[in-house]
Amino acid sequence: MRNSLFVLLAVLAAAAVYAAARIVDNPYVFFAGYVVLQFVVLATAWNILGGYCGYVNFGSAAFFALGAYTTVAMVKFPALAAKYLPEPLIAVTNLIFPLPIPVLILFGGVIAGLVGLGTGYLTLRLRGVYFSIATLALAVVLQTLVVNWDYVGGSRGAYVVRPATTPFFGIDYMEYLFLMMLALSVATLAAARSIERSRLGFGFAAIRDDELAAESCGVPTLRLKLVATALSGAFMGMAGAPFPYYIGFLEPSSAFGLAYAVNSIAMPMIGGTTSWIGPLIGAVLLGTLQQLATVTIWSELSLLIVGLLLIGFVIVAPNGIVGLLETLLGRKRTEPARAADAEGKA
């Protein structure tokens, strides 16, 4: 399927999702749906580095929070400008701000992408578990910085007041945010899918399978890994950018929450890491389950669900739902049998 056709189909699917959400005619659908879509973006973004390249990132929350705090910084800017800038510049500032959500998403993406690139430079000489530990450290460092940065609210947190109106026919603001996240999901999935089918994705797969062999085939491993960390970080940042408007009040412990790090690993793992559809399935399934549990039982239950499902899948279907389906449909290619190495029969 051509990329343009895929985008068209994805847009149609997204339109169907939106129509269905409207038909239900319950504002809570948009409220809960936003979170599910946010996890679709996060899981897909995680999978670009974790699934395609095999580098497990434990610091997803850091990139998500970077996006969210970029928005907070932008929201707070007019107040800062009013204090320090000369009169004409304040007028200009008031004209531009508050920035619309798509611009904030772009900013969040750029900032998180740059941090992703920097992290890549510092850590990508590390492999396997050492890389993962470094990403965990990144989350801790960034959280400490934010906690001690008064401008974005520090440990007290920051209020972000939603505008009274939306640019789209006066629809409800939550509906507007839902639409934004829906569009971002389509964009992220389309990007992930086109990476998968490109020479870039081929290089990623080589890195995942055997980095030294990739290097000796002339795959520019360091450069490709930097592309992966930057892209993955950027999409995570984009997922976080509208979050302050969604939540209304942002504090470091919610932006850097454990749920983001755990979910963005668990969702691709449960869905399947080898293709774009795996994180989508995982995120929709787990995200919906978590939202249902939040409403019907208890919100703290959601992480328990993730944990139990992850354990179950690791045991029963280590290649995720996509891998399980491939096996059931008999389309699975022969699994590598270590025994074949014992040799002697060829």
């Binding site: 020479r199 081929f202 290089g203 797969a205 080589a206 995942r208 399978d209 055997d210 030294l212 062999a213 990739a214 000796s216 085939c217 002339g218 795959v219 290619r333 590598p336």
Partner: peptide, 26 residues
């Protein structure tokens, strides 16, 4: 200059053909 690495170092989860195509990555 091409290398056949020690211990073969194939890409185990890619097909034979994909392995060959990676040899022509440049």
């Amino acid at each position: 200059i091409a290398l056949v690495p020690e211990g073969r170092r194939l890409f185990p989860r890619l097909t034979v053909e994909e392995n060959l195509l990676l040899g022509a990555f440049r």
